[in-house]
Amino acid sequence: MTPSADDAAHAVHCRLDELLEARGMTLTELAQRVGITLANLSILKNDRARSIRFSTLTAICRTLDCTPGELLILTEEDTH
């Protein structure tokens, strides 16, 4: 199944960089603590993710002591 144009464009921004910096943590350290590959975290961090599992979102939020709304925000314009 080919994704539609609506699926490709989104206005969700991942604030992973800001949250990591505020907590003095590296992406590599987060990957190890959460048990997710560095490549998959990079996709999320660079706003290239098309989806995220609730279990992954939960693990990231617990590790960073944040809420999903602090990690993922809706921007005014499509990022893609």
Rank of each mutant, 00 (worst) to 15 (best):
V12F: 15
A49P: 00
A22I: 03
D65P: 00
L20P: 14
Q32G: 14
R48A: 13
L27A: 02
G24F: 04
A22T: 02
I36G: 06
A11Q: 11
N46T: 13
L41N: 05
S42M: 13
E29W: 01
T58F: 14
V34S: 01
T67W: 10
P68K: 05
V34L: 05
F54K: 04
A49D: 05
L19V: 04
D6H: 13
D17T: 13
E70F: 00
D47F: 01
F54C: 03
R62C: 05
N40K: 10
G24T: 11
C14V: 12
G24A: 09
E21K: 12
R23I: 02
Q32P: 02
E21A: 15
L30C: 04
C66Q: 05
D7M: 11
R23T: 11
N40E: 15
L38Q: 09
A31P: 00
S51K: 15
I52G: 03
S42R: 08
T67D: 06
L57G: 01
A22L: 12
E21Q: 15
D6W: 04
S42E: 06
N40V: 02
G24H: 09
L57D: 05
A8R: 14
T37G: 14
T37M: 08
N46I: 05
D65L: 07
H13I: 08
S55I: 05
S55N: 12
T63H: 06
H13V: 09
M25S: 02
M25R: 13
L38E: 01
T28M: 08
T63F: 06
E70N: 01
I43E: 13
R50L: 11
G35E: 03
G35A: 09
R62T: 07
C14Q: 00
R62S: 12
S55D: 15
R62P: 01
G35L: 07
R50F: 11
I60G: 02
N40W: 09
L27W: 02
N46K: 06
R33Q: 13
T37R: 10
A31F: 08
I43D: 04
T28I: 11
C66L: 03
T37I: 04
P68M: 05
C14Y: 00
G35Y: 07
T58M: 12
N46S: 11
T58H: 14
L19D: 06
D7W: 03
